[in-house]
């Protein structure tokens, strides 16, 4: 398969993955809204130990996601700048699992279940609010990356068609 066809197929794959990310964002937003509506009514405060733990876990996840997002951006920028199509193919191939929306939905469903169990307990509910927000940030960045790669593929297709 020539590179032009490979890149075209990648574009199709990216569009499909982006649709799944958008569906996830809708579901995550619903959850964030639901938690924000109940958080002020959570009467039970958790122990000092639990508060520390929950704060540590949410900070750790935020940090992990931020580190990943920055690394991803840097790698995509570099690959686009160098017109390194093989690297771009590698990046997109990694995401192909998520063409299947069920995997992402499983993550959200698990969080939803935990969120319900945490209701009433302020710090536990806050922790799931933070997890949902972190997940949202990650998905938004993945979507943004997809759009950047799609722009690059479009540009590449235009350049190729001008050559003919």
């Amino acid at each position: 398969m020539d590179i032009k066809t490979k890149m075209y197929d990648l574009g199709i794959s990216l569009i499909e993955t982006s649709k799944n990310y958008e569906k996830c964002l809708d579901q995550i937003d619903d959850n964030i809204e639901q938690i924000e509506n109940v958080i002020d009514y959570c009467n039970h405060s958790c122990s000092f130990f639990y508060r520390n733990f929950a704060k540590y876990a949410s900070n750790k996840l935020n940090g992990r996601i931020e580190k990943y997002v920055q690394k991803m951006k840097k790698n995509i920028d570099k690959a686009i700048k160098q017109k390194n199509n093989e690297k771009i193919i590698e990046i997109v191939k990694k995401q192909e699992t998520f063409k299947d929306y069920n995997y992402l939905k499983k993550v959200i469903d698990f969080y939803e279940e935990q969120k319900k169990e945490a209701y009433g307990y302020k710090e536990a509910t806050e922790c799931y609010l933070s997890f949902f927000k972190s997940f949202k940030y990650l998905i938004e960045n993945l979507l943004e990356n997809n759009e950047r790669i799609l722009c690059y593929i479009d540009k590449l297709n235009n350049e190729n068609s001008m050559e003919y």
Partner: peptide, 18 residues
């Protein structure tokens, strides 16, 4: 469950990583 929730996203990112 918080640890499990953390691990799910951590694995998700490991899978995406290159």
């Amino acid at each position: 469950n918080i640890i499990k929730s953390y691990k799910i996203l951590d694995n998700f990112m490991n899978h995406l990583d290159f």
